[in-house]
């Protein structure tokens, strides 16, 4: 490879500046601000702040509310990640085998990708509407009286369904391209070596999809943690009451609805640390077992 040398040593940094400033302004600065204000008790009207040390963190972690919401976030994240990855993989495997009208199937499965999260939430509200929602009517046939916004479980269920529905297309696209990246002759060799398609999938196809799967796992956990905000907000109609919310949504509620900026900042710092630990664990434990071609 040809090595290009800039005459001015600062010129490369100048070229990097737009990207670096975006990182600084939209990530580093707010993060630093969050860390700083997590140690202060902010006046609700913004007139002043008092340094309170770790009080905000202690309050956050010891509150009964926080544990409950953290547990829901965990279950929510697990369900969304597991279901959206699993269903997307199933659809991708099936779509990969379709010969006639393949592009129609693929387009139909992908278009949801273009729907904005709040719109996805709105559609979910229509589907789960108390009076006209087709899903509510469907489950009513089986004797389940679904009450979104009233019943804790039902509301959480609707959130999971909406979030999964929104995420499947992204996973589908990645899994499909991952599947198409697997050599056809390797699959044919496997079909001569192993009769059971099920076993073949788990012993050959799945391990070769693992790099894609690992990437998507991280993307999906991050999605369930942070990007489901819009869906949750629309489903709750910004009236959380006793309904389930995720940790990120609680950061918003406490900070901007409850005007407790210090406590909210402390929560977001805890979230940052959680995500950091999670990422380290994922890369350390899982990536080691993954074969990259």
């Amino acid at each position: 490879m040809k090595k290009v040398q800039f005459r001015n040593a600062w010129f490369p940094y100048l070229l990097l500046l737009p990207q670096l400033s975006i990182v600084a302004i939209f990530f580093l600065w707010p993060a630093a601000e969050a860390v700083r204000s997590s140690f202060y008790l902010e006046d609700p009207f913004g007139f002043g702040a008092t340094f309170v040390g770790f009080d905000n963190f202690v309050d956050t972690i010891t509150s009964t509310d926080y544990g409950r919401i953290a547990r829901f976030t965990g279950i929510f994240t697990f369900c969304v990640t597991f279901l959206s990855l699993g269903i997307a993989l199933l659809l991708a495997v099936k779509a990969d085998k379709v010969i006639h009208g393949a592009s129609t199937y693929k387009t139909l499965l992908m278009w949801v990708y273009a729907v904005a999260p709040p719109v996805a939430g709105l559609i979910a509200i229509l589907l789960f509407d108390q009076h006209v929602g087709p899903i509510v009517k469907l489950v009513a046939l089986f004797g389940w009286k679904m009450q979104i916004g009233v019943n804790y479980f039902d509301t959480g269920f609707a959130m999971v369904i909406a979030a999964v529905w929104k995420q499947i297309p992204v996973n589908f696209i990645f899994f499909l391209s991952g599947l198409q990246g697997i050599s056809k002759s390797v699959q044919e060799a496997a079909s001569i070596d192993c009769r059971s398609g099920f076993r073949r999938f788990w012993t050959v196809t799945f391990p070769l999809l693992a790099p894609t799967g690992f990437f998507l796992l991280i993307i999906n956990i991050t999605y369930a943690f942070f990007d489901t905000f819009g869906i949750i907000d629309v489903i709750l109609k910004t009236e959380p009451g006793n309904n389930p919310v995720t940790l990120v949504y609680k950061v918003y509620l406490d900070g901007f609805r409850g005007n407790d900026l210090g406590g909210s900042s402390a929560q977001s710092v805890v979230l940052m640390i959680l995500v950091f630990i999670l990422t380290v664990i994922q890369f350390r434990l899982i990536e080691r077992r993954i074969h990259y071609t």
Binding site: S183, S185, V186, E188, A189, A190, V204, P207, L208, A210, H291, T293
Partner: peptide, 10 residues
């Protein structure tokens, strides 16, 4: 025996 060998890479 395949042209590109088709060994299981993993």
């Amino acid at each position: 025996v395949f042209q590109n060998y088709a060994l299981y890479p993993h």
